[in-house]
């Protein structure tokens, strides 16, 4: 338990729990809309934002050159989410190709810009695969504020966000502000990705949004309960991953995702065995 007295471990646990709670909230809406891989794409673009922020920080002569990385990521991720939402709602021909160009262009620009800003491979890897073991108290406060926005809107607007993501045509007929609510989901996804980037990195960020929801779906069949159970699972995975990381020298982001995949396989196996037994 002496490990828990370490301020770094405390910061890691706080950030991990916040991200573990917030990511599945947005993930539930993305899975509902069958857009589970959206987070992956926005994450790619967020890396370009990180790099742009880094470059701006270097140009401005800031002591901490990556001080503008998170604001940069937030702006780029929201921009990408807004473009994707526009393409989706307009049903634009070739929208998938445009999105692919956006995603891969984002990550390529990000890698080049980080290099131009004087970033090292270690810095780059930190954003690609997460760097929860380097969080500062400033990171904790920023993460806390962004996670609070996601939780407040994602849970507070749950009935109307459910209506819009479940049946958009009916939602329009009721007079719900469908366009605005769709944009709320897109912006929440962008903010969540920026927050979760610190824990699991842009390449694995989608997993933290989707895996807890996939596990919860095996356990329950109500939308509200799926979201609630997914939040508990998300927080449990990040906490367990953080604690194991402190004890053993493993990459935290990858470990959290592997734990999630393992939990999904185990829960699915138990559920299918139960179904087979009750069918007999």
């Amino acid at each position: 338990m002496t490990v828990l007295a370490d301020p770094l471990v405390q910061r890691m646990l706080i950030v991990g729990v916040l991200v573990g709670l917030a990511a599945p909230v947005v993930g539930t809406y993305l899975v509902q809309r069958r857009m589970a891989l959206l987070g992956d794409g926005i994450g790619h673009v967020a890396l370009a934002g990180v790099a742009a922020g880094w470059l701006a920080g270097s140009a401005a002569g800031l002591t901490q050159r990556d001080a503008l990385a998170v604001p940069g990521a937030v702006i780029f991720a929201i921009g990408a989410a807004a473009i994707i939402e526009r393409l989706r709602t307009r049903g634009t021909t070739g929208a998938d190709v445009v999105m692919a160009i956006l995603f891969y262009g984002g990550i390529a620009v990000g890698v080049l810009l980080i290099g131009a800003a004087g970033g090292t491979n270690a810095n780059l890897l930190g954003y690609l695969f997460g760097s929860i073991s380097t969080v500062t108290w400033t990171d904790v406060w920023v993460t806390g504020a962004l996670a609070a926005v996601v939780l407040l809107l994602g849970i507070g607007l749950r009935p109307s966000l459910f209506a819009v993501t479940h049946d958009q045509e009916f939602a329009r007929s009721t007079g719900l502000p469908v366009g605005a609510l769709n944009m709320v989901v897109a912006v929440l996804a962008a903010v969540t990705i920026t927050v979760a980037m610190r824990v699991v990195g842009v390449l694995l960020v989608s997993a933290l949004m989707i895996l807890p929801v996939a596990i919860a779906q095996v356990l329950t069949h109500s939308f509200t309960r799926t979201m609630n159970v997914a939040m508990v699972i998300g927080a449990t995975l990040t906490t367990a991953g953080t604690i194991i990381t402190v004890t053993y020298d493993v990459q935290p982001g990858a470990l959290i995702v592997v734990l999630g995949v393992g939990a999904y396989v185990a829960v699915s196996l138990v559920a299918s065995m139960r179904r087979a037994r009750s069918a007999r």
Partner: peptide, 30 residues
């Protein structure tokens, strides 16, 4: 609407689906 929209990516109970009918302009919560 036509029935193709009854189920989606995440499971929802019949009660949750019907409750969404109580929302509308200026009413974002039931």
């Amino acid at each position: 609407p036509q029935r193709v929209t009854a189920s989606a990516g995440v499971s929802a109970t019949a009660r949750e689906v019907v409750m969404s009918g109580l929302l509308g302009a200026g009413r974002l919560r039931p």
